[in-house]
Design a protein around this nucleic acid. Structure first.
Lengths: 202, 202
DNA sequence: CTTTTTGTGATACGACCGTATCATCAACGG
DNA sequence: CCGTTGATGATACGGTCGTATCACAAAAAG
């Protein structure tokens, strides 16, 4: 056999080539040949590491999820340790708002997958597509903690507020990607709502 | 010439066939042949009335816009005449929330086009893709009217609040289409926020 | 009644798609 | 040293895509 090679690394290299294409030209431009070229390998290799296109799409989606949660964690950490309920909520939501190149790439790619899953629900069943669900529960939990600490109006329904915040952030993200406003304007709207919730700026 | 035919009607018939496909199987399933079959005409006819695929996509997008604004107007009217600032805002936002078959179809189709435009921005420049912008200004205007009538906190920044409401509604719609919650739950979250804005239920 | 014009069918072309096949080459086990 | 196996290249197949071409029928124009 030729020099034994790290399969996981190669798979990631190819999968991330697909994500790169999806973020710039959309998933419909991500043919096997195009992915091979972008990754700098031959078509045969893409087939070798991902036997079928669906496998490639699902594998790349898993990498996208990793990148997304890594960014969320990094953003939370950047707001200081130990994290407060406020910084957890704030950091999570600002992490998934397209305000810089990386977040723009991530949200664009996520949008491409979202539409694909809408048209082909079979893709979602294979995968724990409950990522937004996890985020929402995460937010609701920390909102409740903030309520117990007296930082948020205790009359608020935490799950409803968390769902609203996440939906607001996603909607703002869509408007940024659509070119309706820039990332800073969206961030201003989001912080305005967050500050109202937490009773004024920190 | 064979019996003179109504071109506008035929174009609409074909364009709406594309919208039907896009809403169920996505735009990537909307090939010229598939659209022809769905519309019950030959491939040649699709080519005859829309010389190229881009023309077809743009034409159908125009029909989608018509259907969308027709639904918004109908929803506003259904809340009683003459419309109040509150019913204008409420009717607009609930119209674009996927709570029934028609709104689900419209929002799904809109999402498909949104992703296409993200990948192919050239499509948007041809068309006044500023539909969300129009909605936002519409909402901001009526929020300001409501402030002058004392129905909404005058300390609120109307454009920011309007952008937030529209983003919230879009984000909630995405979660409904994604199967994260049903239309009624989304509607409850939206009305909760609206009622807080307008100072309690009507 | 011819001659144009408008609408429609049948079919073809070249490109690209996902997938499969065949051959090869390098390392390891015996 | 040799046969087995892991990794890779080259190439092909059937299908679908958007688009173009050719033919033709039917109504209108002269």
């Amino acid at each position: 056999m030729p020099k034994r090679v790290d399969h996981d690394l190669r798979r990631r290299q190819i999968g991330e080539a697909l994500l790169r294409i999806a973020s710039t030209r959309g998933l419909q431009a991500a043919s096997m040949r195009e992915v091979a070229t972008e990754a700098g390998v031959s078509l045969r290799l893409v087939q070798y590491y991902f036997h079928t296109k669906q496998e490639l799409l699902l594998g790349a989606l898993a990498y996208l999820g990793e990148q997304l949660s890594a960014r969320v964690e990094a953003h939370i950490r950047a707001l200081g340790m130990p994290p407060t309920p406020r910084s957890l909520v704030y950091g999570t939501l600002t992490a998934i708002l397209p305000t810089d190149d990386e977040s723009r790439r991530l949200t664009r790619t996520y949008a491409a997958y979202y539409t694909l899953v809408l048209a082909e629900p079979a893709l979602a069943t294979e995968h724990g597509a409950t990522y937004p669900d996890l985020l929402e529960r995460f937010l609701a939990g920390h909102l409740r903690t903030a309520q117990q600490a007296g930082q948020v109006d205790p009359g608020l329904d935490a799950p409803t507020a968390a769902a609203g915040l996440l939906a607001l952030t996603n909607g703002l993200g869509s408007s940024v990607l659509g070119g309706q406003r820039d990332g800073d304007a969206a961030l201003a709207i989001l912080t305005y709502h967050l500050d109202r919730l937490f009773g004024g700026p920190a």
